[in-house]
């Protein structure tokens, strides 16, 4: 594996994968990944379909724990407290309270816009109406959706357009102030205009939250990310500054993928 700046990080780390492997039953889907996640930066994961980038992403909030037969090896260290997110002693719910996620297909709950955003707060036991109102507005503003929905917070979420639904899901994740936000191909179901809005949002959000984003779209990775990792067949082939990965990749396989000769 080629690394360009693990030895001298320019930014403090939010998380770090250490020799992370993952198994779906007997199938080894991730093979000993080492990778830093820099604080308040956007890190993009690229690679061909089936390379394990979503599997890797879903390890950060222990989503794999929902299904039987899955197994992790290695560690994901989470800073500043240096917790191993994958440790058997760490409850996956604790992990998900600190690490938010936005999915590939917008998945709003069939409830009101307000209830969708308030859900994470309700789960945390918050029921004070004024506080909920305030937090929901804040989250919707951060997700650049407030102006579009402020007059119909009680409308059902599935009545929104696809792009609005995805921003609602971002608001839902933001409402609980996550330290790390995972995006799993968040624009693959959206049209170019809605995609642009989400990309702009990602750019805005990195001021306050660390972002890890899986994308099948290399232009998107180049546009939104500070760091990029290229994955192939469950391995991390190359990690570095996005500019360097796209301008002068060190690994032949990365170059082939970026220039469109493969994948």
């Amino acid at each position: 594996m080629q690394t360009q700046d693990i030895t001298q990080p320019q930014h403090p780390l939010k998380a770090e994968a250490r020799n992370l492997s993952f198994y779906y039953g007997a199938v080894k889907a991730l093979k000993g990944i080492n990778m830093p996640i820099h604080d308040k930066k956007v890190t993009a994961l690229i690679g061909p379909s089936g390379c394990g980038k979503s599997t890797y992403l879903r390890s950060f909030n222990r989503m794999h724990d929902l299904y039987p037969g899955n197994r992790y090896e290695g560690e994901i260290r989470f800073f500043p407290d240096n917790t191993n997110l994958l440790s058997a002693d760490v409850d996956p719910i604790e992990v998900r309270m600190r690490v938010g996620m936005v999915f590939q297909k917008p998945n709003p709950f069939p409830k009101s816009i307000f209830e969708n955003v308030a859900y994470g707060l309700r789960v945390r036991g918050l029921s004070n109406k004024r506080l909920l109102d305030e937090k929901v507005e804040q989250a919707l503003r951060s997700a650049a959706l407030w102006d579009e929905v402020k007059d119909r917070l009680q409308a059902l979420a599935p009545t929104l357009s696809g792009g609005q639904q995805q921003r609602l899901c971002i608001a839902r994740a933001l409402a609980t102030d996550p330290e790390l936000l995972l995006f799993d191909e968040p624009t693959s179901a959206l049209d170019p205009i809605a995609t642009g809005a989400i990309e702009e949002l990602v750019h805005e959000l990195k001021k306050r939250v660390t972002i890890l984003i899986v994308t099948h779209n290399m232009q998107q990775a180049a546009r939104v990310s500070d760091y990029t990792a290229y994955m192939y067949l469950g391995e991390m082939i190359e990690f570095g500054n996005t500019d360097e990965i796209f301008m002068k990749p060190n690994d032949r396989r990365t170059e082939d993928y970026i220039t469109g000769r493969m994948g």
Binding site: I93, R96, G100, F103, K105, N107, P108, F109, G120
Partner: peptide, 12 residues
């Protein structure tokens, strides 16, 4: 994805 969406915000 509805179940995952709920679990992802830290629900039991």
């Amino acid at each position: 994805m509805i179940r995952e969406g709920s679990m992802a915000v830290g629900a039991t």
